[in-house]
């Protein structure tokens, strides 16, 4: 048995119900000990400065506009030995890649029925890195999220912020005419009548989430 057991766990989750479920899970298991439970990733790294935190269950979209992956990157930089599991219910496809870049150890979708979080926690603490093989498939209008190209998803993400074609082109470093073509394809694939309808639906289903 590991000398550090029980592992100190920090939960960062802004929704009351999932947070309580996670708290209950941690408290009900002798291998883990609940150190902190926060609603926002904003100041999560401050707790790690002097306290030994072995594992963080980090929601990606948290209260106060703080992105859990940014906080994870900060924590991993200062305390590389702290294990982090990113958890989310948002199918935003770029989260997985960003989590890898932030050196997050494992990634778990809340709706994933194939493996429960406790198993992911145990295997992560044993040194494994567990990532889903793909994002969940999402329906957006008539289209499956798998049918959309990466570029189209990038354009779609900026569209949800209310950016104009010119602004999107500037952000993504592509011509405005190219943006128009992507938007046209998106509308054709999904069957929505207007870009507003498309943007709102994309935002609701969580396929693309722009940082605040």
């Amino acid at each position: 048995m590991d000398a550090n057991m029980p592992y100190n766990v920090m939960i960062v989750e802004d929704q009351a119900l999932p947070r309580q479920l996670l708290e209950m899970l941690v408290k009900g298991n002798e291998r883990y000990r609940l150190a902190y439970s926060l609603d926002s990733a904003f100041a999560a790294d401050v707790y790690c400065t002097i306290h030994r935190i072995d594992l963080i269950l980090m929601d990606v979209v948290t209260a106060g506009g703080a992105n859990g992956l940014d906080a994870a990157a900060r924590i991993k930089r200062a305390c590389p030995r702290t294990k982090i599991i990113a958890i989310t219910s948002m199918p935003e496809y770029s989260y997985i890649e960003r989590a890898r870049q932030a050196k997050v150890d494992s990634f778990w979708y809340k709706e994933d029925n194939s493996m429960d979080i406790l198993e992911v926690m145990d295997r992560t603490m044993a040194g494994e890195s567990i990532y889903p093989s793909s994002t969940p498939e999402i329906r957006l209008g008539n289209a499956s999220s798998y049918e959309l190209t990466e570029r189209e998803l990038e354009v779609l993400r900026e569209m949800t912020t209310g950016a104009t074609n010119a602004e999107i082109g500037e952000i993504l470093n592509i011509a405005e005419s190219t943006v128009k073509v992507h938007v046209k394809h998106l509308l054709e694939k999904t069957g929505f009548r207007s870009r507003t309808e498309l943007a709102i639906n994309a935002r609701i289903c969580g396929l693309v989430i722009a940082d605040e």
Binding site: D14, Q15, A16, L38, D39, S40, F42, A43, A44, V46, Y47, A63, G64, G65, A66
Partner: peptide
């Protein structure tokens, strides 16, 4: 949740 201000979060931390 999500109503608390980040200043309060920082003070707590």
């Amino acid at each position: 949740s999500g109503t608390a201000d980040n200043l309060q979060r920082l003070l707590d931390a």
